[in-house]
C-alpha cells in the first residue's frame, strides 16, 4: 500500500451485516491536508466506513491505510494521531464536561497527567464551552454535547480529524462555528474528514469530496472536478442579439430567454466551457458596446451533480 500523500486510502473496502452489504468495494482516497467531505444520504454507509477506518469494526474484505499505516493492525500507533467524532457524542452524564474530557485524556496511553488539566482547558476553550465546564453533561443541550464531542477529538494535536455529522443538533450559529473550527484546524495542517447527509452544509468547506449511495462510491475527487468544468454564464442586457453574436465568436452557444427581464433588459444564457474566462467575455461584450447590466457565473451545486449522477433526489433513504 502506498503512502502517496493520502491520509486515508481504502481498497475494495467492504462490510457486510449478515446478508446486507452496508459498504461495497469502496476505494476512498483522502489527500493529506484536504478538507474531505464524505457525503451521502442517511444509510449510505458513511458511519460504517468511519468505524472501519478507526478499527472499531473489522472489514469483511478490503484494505485500509490511515496516515500511511495499515489498519486495524497498526491501530495502537495510528489512533493517537487521529481525533474523531463518530455517530454522535457519547459521555458519562453524571460527570461534568471537564471530568469527561479528563477521563478520555487519561485513557490515552502516554499522555502526561501533569499537563492534563491544561489540555482539557484548551480543548474546552476551542469549542467555546469553558462556561459549562463544571456542569454535568446530563444537563447539556444536544449542541453542547456535540461541541464537547469535538473537544474530545482536539485533546491532543492530531494529524487527522474525523467528524461524523458534526453539525447534527447545532443551530445555524453553531454550524458556522464548526465550519470555522474546521477551517482553523485545516489551516494548521490537519487533514479533516467530515461526513454529512446535508451536502449544502459543508460543500463550501471542502477541497475534496466523495459521494456515497447505498454503500457505493458515486463520485470522488477535487470539488471542481466533481462539479464538472462546465458552468452556466448568465447575462442581463438590453442588447441581447448583439451579445449572442459576441458570445458565439468566443465559442459559446447562447440563448435569449424572454420571460426573465426587467424593463428592456433581457437574459442571455450560455454554457461556459472550462477554458473560457468570464472576465474575457465581459470585456469583449463591453468592447462591442453591449450594455452589461448583470453577469453571473453559476456552478452546479454538489446536490445537482448527485441528482445528475444518480437520477435521484439526495434525501431518499434506501
Amino acid at each position: 500500500m502506498t503512502t502517496s500523500g493520502l491520509a486515508v486510502e481504502t481498497r475494495g473496502l467492504t462490510k457486510r451485516f449478515g446478508r446486507h452489504e452496508a459498504v461495497s468495494s469502496l476505494d476512498l482516497d483522502v489527500p493529506t491536508g484536504s478538507v474531505f467531505g464524505f457525503l451521502g444520504p442517511n444509510g449510505s454507509g458513511k458511519t460504517t466506513t468511519i468505524r472501519m477506518l478507526l478499527a472499531l469494526a473489522a472489514p469483511t474484505a478490503g484494505t485500509i491505510s490511515v496516515l500511511g499505516s495499515e489498519m486495524p493492525s497498526r491501530s495502537a500507533d495510528v489512533l493517537p494521531r487521529v481525533g474523531a467524532l463518530v455517530e454522535g457524542p457519547g459521555f458519562y452524564p453524571f460527570l461534568s464536561g471537564e471530568a469527561n474530557l479528563t477521563r478520555f485524556d487519561a485513557a490515552e496511553p502516554g499522555t502526561s497527567s501533569r499537563t492534563r488539566e491544561g489540555r482539557v482547558a484548551d480543548a474546552l476553550a476551542r469549542v467555546g464551552l469553558p462556561a459549562a465546564a463544571r456542569k454535568k453533561v446530563g444537563s447539556y443541550s444536544l449542541g453542547m454535547k456535540q461541541r464537547l464531542g469535538i473537544a474530545v477529538a482536539l485533546l491532543s494535536p492530531r494529524d487527522l480529524i474525523v467528524l461524523d455529522e458534526p453539525t447534527n443538533g447545532l443551530d445555524p450559529q453553531g454550524t458556522r462555528e464548526v465550519r470555522a473550527l474546521i477551517r482553523g484546524l485545516n489551516a494548521d495542517g490537519t487533514t479533516v474528514l467530515v461526513s454529512s447527509h446535508l451536502l449544502a452544509e459543508i460543500e463550501q468547506l471542502c477541497s475534496h469530496a466523495a459521494i456515497m449511495r447505498t454503500g457505493r462510491l458515486v463520485a470522488q475527487g477535487g470539488l471542481d472536478e466533481l462539479r464538472g468544468t462546465t458552468a452556466a454564464f448568465e447575462l442581463e442586457t438590453p442588447d441581447a442579439e448583439r451579445a449572442v453574436g459576441v458570445l458565439a465568436r468566443h465559442g459559446l452557444a447562447a440563448l435569449v430567454t424572454d420571460d426573465v427581464h426587467v424593463g428592456d433588459g433581457r437574459r442571455v444564457d450560455a454554457a461556459l466551457p472550462g477554458d473560457v474566462l468570464s472576465e474575457d467575455l465581459v470585456s469583449a461584450l463591453v468592447a462591442a458596446d453591449v450594455r452589461v447590466r448583470g453577469v453571473a457565473v453559476r456552478r452546479p451545486s454538489l446536490e445537482e451533480c448527485f441528482v445528475e449522477l444518480t437520477g435521484e433526489g439526495f434525501d431518499v433513504e434506501r
Binding site: A76, L79, V86, Y92, F104, E108, P109
Partner: peptide, 18 residues
C-alpha cells in the same frame, strides 16, 4: 450503552487494557 466505549477505543485505550 453510554456511547463512551467507541471514544475510549479511539483514544486508543487498548481493548485488553480496558
Amino acid at each position: 450503552s453510554l456511547g463512551t466505549l467507541r471514544y475510549l477505543l479511539i483514544t486508543p485505550v487498548g481493548r485488553i487494557r480496558l
